[in-house]
Amino acid sequence: MSAAPVKLSHVTKRFAKDVIAVDDISLEVEPGSLVTLLGPSGCGKTTTLRMVAGLERASSGQIFIDGQDVTQLPANLRDVTMVFQSYALFPHMNVFENVAYGLQVARRPADEIKKRAHEALALVGLEGLENRSTRALSGGQQQRVALARALVMQPKVLLFDEPLSNLDAKLRKRVREEIRDLQKSLGITSIYVTHDQEEALAISDVIVVINKGRIEQQGSPLELYTQPANHFVADFIGSASFLPGQYDGKTVSLANYQFDHEQTMSPGKVTVMVRPEAVMLASEGLKAQVLSASYLGSITDFLFQTELGEVMASIPGEGKMPLSKGDETHLRFKPAGIHLLKPSK
């Protein structure tokens, strides 16, 4: 199996004179890994993906696939296939014809086409449905046909453009596991676009967070969750509260609550990111009053008002509501869910 690295070097895409969709993005995708481009809609992630596919040409910068500069190469000459958001199955062809299309265009011999199309369909678990019309398939099955059609070409790079957004929530979880398993076992370099942070955390080797055409941060899911580079990433991946504090290189001070924390960070004013699951109720610490509480069974979601701002908390309830609206308490934070950011303006 050919696993190829992908490299983007200072890639920019301008649409009109002053509409910059993608602004100076550089990134490297290791061979065989799955990299997710994550960001809010309109952030430029799909445009970046389409530039790798060749469906858009970069206004400046270079794109390398397997070491070859493909920046000016048209899409049909790149060794890349794509799974589309709308699946884009050809409505006038049945399942087999859809999967065989790319091989037919490449003028492979008929018996090879047949063999490989069957293999690809077996891979996605659709053997026996070759002669079905694509319109007679469920959403999940259509998704798999699209995947088989892309896989059968044995591309150097496989691209996914929000492939799960047309599926319902339950199916989405299952299909994303399948895609991840298949990608791992075939070892195909993949780039995956989504706006769903949970999906990104679940399937990626590396997540690239994009906002307004620029990369905010890239790293493993764990890195991004525990050590977000800035407010945007911390807020976009998971949820978090942000409190203004002081750091002296060893101890964090939040009003009169102090705790030890180790992080390479210059002393002075900081913004303290607090994940909801890091919040504990205590008899001393940061003074807080309950603004709202929603009992969710295994946990209770709280919103606290403190003198430094609002704090979200998910607290294991052990079968009962520990506090209700208006109650006063103190909060302490577990070190694992704390990260210091440069103070925001």
Binding site: A53, G54, L55, A75, N76, L77, R78, V80, T81, M82, F84, Q85, S86, A88, L89, F90, P91, H92, Y101, G102, V105, A106, A146, R149, A150, M153, L159
Partner: peptide, 26 residues
Amino acid sequence: DPSLEEASTTLRASSSITLRRILVPL
């Protein structure tokens, strides 16, 4: 849907093949 043509393109079809095999039949 324009992504039909894009799908054809990423499957290595030139635009003349896409026209002939996707758009003309549709």
